[in-house]
């Protein structure tokens, strides 16, 4: 293990000796993760002709043209897609977090008939692939005339069995029963107990649920692909896919799709970097610490 170190330095402490190899492995991992991101940024600077004719990592001359084309495409459709994604992922994840937190808190902090059975139903929902539900959900939406509307993508995203499961784990772990009891003895209503004790204590958990759900919706491709037909209602990834699909008949769109990808990835990366300090991902593995 320490064979890779230099022999010139005598008497290294054990933790110093192992330094090089782990660092190198980590940096290889970081490089692996960053190469495609670097590619998309470089590719965004290329004109269509350069895209197919110059070496992949050589920056091109078309960045501003591409950006101009992107924002001009379909009368600013890209901005609309971004706004839609924000609506589906942002508003959807926010509501989903509230709903999941309420349900998880109820499962964790109350005894009521049917609690175990309902919770097992939710657990089964965790194991059911969301994608296999997309087609049945589509069928229900056609029956209720919601297909093609904003609701058809937003509503299915509000229920997350995994979110409920996580909320229960967080409530179990971070809201002590004794605190709740003393608040009740002081005469606080159930509503006040939840809002002034439960929610603040669960906040880091809620951020985690929000983040997971946000990324899940942001990435969700099949559901909007099935539900929507009006391009003005597309989320950003579906819009980019459409550009690419059209790109094979109309390759000028490749450049737009690629610069659009670069533009859409950057804010999400910033959001993740900002929110990661609030994460409680350790809780995902359940009762580990309970």
């Amino acid at each position: 293990m320490s064979g890779a170190t230099t022999p010139r330095r005598p008497r290294l402490l054990p933790h110093q000796r192992a330094r090089l190899l782990p660092t190198v492995v980590l940096l290889i991992g970081a490089f692996y993760a960053l190469v495609p991101v670097a590619w998309i940024v470089v590719a965004a600077t290329k004109s269509n002709a350069e895209l197919f004719s110059t070496f992949t990592f050589r920056p091109g001359s078309g960045l501003f043209d591409n950006l101009g084309d992107l924002f001009a495409y379909g009368d600013g459709q890209f901005v609309r897609w971004a706004a839609n994604s924000l609506l589906y992922a942002g508003l959807g994840a926010l509501l989903c977090t509230v709903i999941s937190t309420m349900a998880g808190y109820a499962f964790a902090k109350y005894e009521f008939p049917g609690r175990t059975g309902l919770f097992y139903a939710v657990l089964a929902g965790v194991l059911l692939p969301g994608m296999t539900l997309a087609i049945p959900q589509y069928l229900i939406m056609t029956k209720t005339d919601l297909v093609g509307s904003y609701w058809s993508v937003l509503l299915p995203g509000l229920i997350s069995p995994f979110g409920i499961y996580l909320a229960r784990v967080y409530a179990d772990a971070s809201v002590p029963d004794s605190t709740i009891e003393s608040a009740r003895l002081d005469g606080a209503s159930e509503y006040r107990v939840l809002t002034s004790i439960g929610l603040p204590m669960m906040f880091p958990g809620m951020v985690t649920i929000f983040m997971l759900q946000f990324v899940g919706s942001w990435n969700n491709f099949l559901l909007p692909f099935i539900m929507l037909s009006d391009e003005d209602r597309y989320p950003i990834n579906l819009g980019l896919y459409t550009l690419l699909a059209k790109g094979s008949g109309e390759p000028a769109l490749y450049g737009i799709a690629i610069v659009g990808t670069a533009v859409s990835v950057v804010p999400l990366i910033c959001l993740l970097l900002f929110l990661q300090r609030f994460w409680r991902l350790d809780m995902i593995s359940g009762g580990l610490k309970g």
Binding site: A30, A33, P36, V215, N219, T261, V265, L273
Partner: peptide, 21 residues
């Protein structure tokens, strides 16, 4: 942070980038 970044890239977009590569 670097290894975590790809999580922010939608699968469809990731496929496109790798496809080109």
């Amino acid at each position: 942070v670097a290894i975590f970044l790809p999580y922010a890239v939608p699968g469809v977009v990731a496929s496109l980038m790798w496809g080109f590569m």
